[in-house]
Amino acid sequence: MNAVASAQVSRDTVLAWLGEVMDPEVPVVSVVDLGLIRDVEWQDESLVVTVTPTYSGCPATEVIAQSIRDAVQARGIGEVTVRTQLAPAWTTDWMSTKGRDALRAYGIAPPVHRAAAADGTQAIDISALLAQRVVVPCPQCNSRKTRLLSQFGSTACKALYQCNDCLEPFDYFKAH
């Protein structure tokens, strides 16, 4: 395999390829729609994909990096580097509308509000924190009568809710 066509492959083309790389734990949302891809650029003959992790300890991070390398190399790009960038910290605000819709269709409620500022400068008001009761609409029946069952669900990025109308329990992708 060589880099014959590499210089001609545009950033948009690479992003389109990456649009088919799904998150291993939420296999209906791509790494692009999750907002994990921060940059795609050529450095000489090497393609550099800059990725930001979701949660510090997310075990999917390494699988995602490998899936990205595989997807790009499958198109004949020989040299690819996946670089990790921590700042600015990933936020669910970067999730695309397409990603949110795909989550809902899959039975996972998407984040319902904008995430808190990450720079630590924002005052943290304990009373607001504890009184905070976000309304998470049920992804099955759209009822707004739902309740939090557990602050963590199947993965660090989700919480567990239940619908009081259709009674279905469901995962909620937390605003982060």
Binding site: L86, A87, A118, A156
Partner: peptide
């Protein structure tokens, strides 16, 4: 900046 979001 990454950690404080989780720790909150």
């Amino acid at each position: 900046q990454k950690s404080v979001k989780e720790v909150r």
